[in-house]
């Protein structure tokens, strides 16, 4: 599982960071940073929640 964020869509509102702060972080420069692009299967449901809850539908999961 690899996390893909469409940074053209992302508006840095940090919803994903609230669900998974160990994976997503919005820093003081207002940009989103992916701390762990390839989290393990144990994190799948949290990442899926991020995909679902992102108001901009900016996050997707690539299976490669």
């Amino acid at each position: 599982m690899r996390i893909v964020v469409d940074f053209d869509l992302c508006e840095s509102n940090a919803v994903c960071m609230q669900i998974a702060p160990d994976i997503f972080e919005v820093r003081d420069d207002d940009f989103l940073y992916i701390l762990n692009e390839t989290p393990g299967e144990a994190d799948r449901s949290r990442v899926e929640e991020c995909v679902q809850r992102c108001p901009k539908q900016a996050i997707s999961i690539a299976e490669d």
Partner: peptide
């Protein structure tokens, strides 16, 4: 105002 990270921290 342009502080999404802080909003989410305080929201928690």
């Amino acid at each position: 105002f342009n502080r999404p990270r802080h909003v989410m921290r305080y929201r928690a």
